[in-house]
């Protein structure tokens, strides 16, 4: 898993703690994500998966501990934080495409306004990315005119347009109708094959088995188990994980 010969992890969380009021949502989290690694985060609702994911681009602040991204501690605010976020893509459960902008504008906004790319270059690259996720023909439409699956693929293209060092996915297929899940997962598997570093909160076992290097099982704000996908799904070590798996596997 070492790209460009760099063996240091891309992300390292050390003793990370986070509260919402009295609720302790992240408890002494230790986690690394290697370059090119695909990490799947799985676990019961309310376990802190989204919060964990969102601390990595500082959409959530942390109370204590450190998060190091690409060798640097996460900046607290201002331009440095904006720059960090531009290097960490994020794909949301509810897509969050800019509703007043066309599909192509959604994909070119960041490169133009954050990276200062020329519009023509951004559009050329934007069309390439839309082509790659299979929605180039929809470029001039608005998000509301697209299906959920198409919107989520746009969101992935929007993240890719920033040439991020990694992409965070927070339940990217949970809001989709079943027949659209696969088209989004296929795009994600493609990214994984191309060596993109990804943290993916998902319950899609198929994806985890096809693309993940590692599975992290989270419950009650703690990382309860880390394992390979194959081992985790067939032979989980902890009772908590076995119990959880028996529930999701039976339906």
């Amino acid at each position: 898993m070492t790209e460009n010969g760099d063996a240091t992890p891309l992300v390292r969380l050390e003793d990370v703690n986070k509260h919402f009021g009295n609720l302790h949502v992240l408890k002494d989290i230790q986690l690394t994500v290697d370059r090119g690694e695909v990490l799947v985060v799985i676990g019961p609702s309310g376990g802190g998966k989204s919060t964990l994911c969102r601390t990595i681009n500082r959409l959530e602040t942390i109370d204590s501990g450190t998060i190091v991204f690409d060798g640097e501690p996460l900046p607290a605010e201002g331009k440095a934080l904006a720059r960090l976020r531009s290097e960490v893509g994020m794909v949301f459960q509810s897509f969050n495409l800019f509703a007043h902008k066309t599909i192509l504008e959604n994909v070119t906004l960041g490169p133009i306004k954050v990276r200062g790319k020329a519009r023509a270059d951004a559009e050329r690259r934007g069309m390439e990315l839309l082509e790659r996720v299979g929605i180039a023909t929809q470029a001039e439409k608005y998000p509301a005119q697209l299906s959920g699956g198409q919107q989520q693929r746009t969101a992935i293209a929007r993240a890719l347009a920033m040439d991020p060092k990694m992409i965070l996915f927070d339940e990217p297929t949970s809001a989709l109708d079943p027949e659209m899940v696969q088209e989004v997962l296929d795009v994600m598997v493609g990214l994984a094959r191309d060596g993109m570093t990804m943290v993916v909160v998902t319950h899609e076992m198929g994806f985890a088995r096809r693309a993940a290097n590692r599975v992290v099982f989270m419950a009650d704000g703690q990382i309860v188990e880390e394992n390979t996908p194959e081992e985790f799904f067939t032979n989980a070590r902890t009772d908590r994980a076995k119990d959880f798996l028996s529930k999701i596997l039976t339906h």
Partner: peptide, 16 residues
Amino acid sequence: FGQAEAARAIGLTFSQ
């Protein structure tokens, strides 16, 4: 709220 979050997530500043 997700609109502002997505904007922040691609690196736009608050005023942008």
